[in-house]
């Protein structure tokens, strides 16, 4: 049996990597990948608790399925926005998205 804390530390590591990815990448698609990493980290936690906490078995899995579905939806919308931005500005560098600065 795998100790619960090992799985939680793995998910913490994935979360930190996701945050670093979001912080350092300028490419909008790179940022999207960081978000996917963060969501996966959260999902690992849900599934781990579903495995080890008796009262949370069903809820944990339901949460994880919801997160997977919403992550797919988020990626689709974000990609649509990025493609639209690319059509207008010919780049996906998020530093260029400064039209609202005035």
């Amino acid at each position: 049996m795998i100790p619960l804390s090992y799985i939680l530390i793995l998910s913490a590591f994935l979360f930190a990597c996701g945050v670093l990815c979001i912080a350092t990448k300028r490419n909008a698609i790179g940022i999207l990948m960081g978000v996917e990493l963060v969501l996966n980290a959260a999902n690992i936690n849900f599934v781990a608790f579903a495995r080890y906490v008796p009262g949370f078995q069903m809820d944990g899995q339901v949460f994880a399925v919801m997160v997977i579905v919403l992550a797919a939806a988020e990626a689709a919308v974000a990609l649509a926005i990025i493609l639209n931005f690319y059509n207008n500005r010919n780049t996906v560098d998020v530093d260029e998205a400064n039209q609202l600065r005035g």
């Binding site: 619960l4 599934v47 080890y52 008796p54 069903m58 944990g60």
Partner: peptide
């Protein structure tokens, strides 16, 4: 997060049946 995880791991968990 790692500190929280280690603290959580100290709590007794049962080896529940498979989800």
């Amino acid at each position: 997060l790692a500190q929280v995880s280690l603290a959580l791991g100290q709590r007794p968990t049962t080896d529940a049946p498979l989800p």
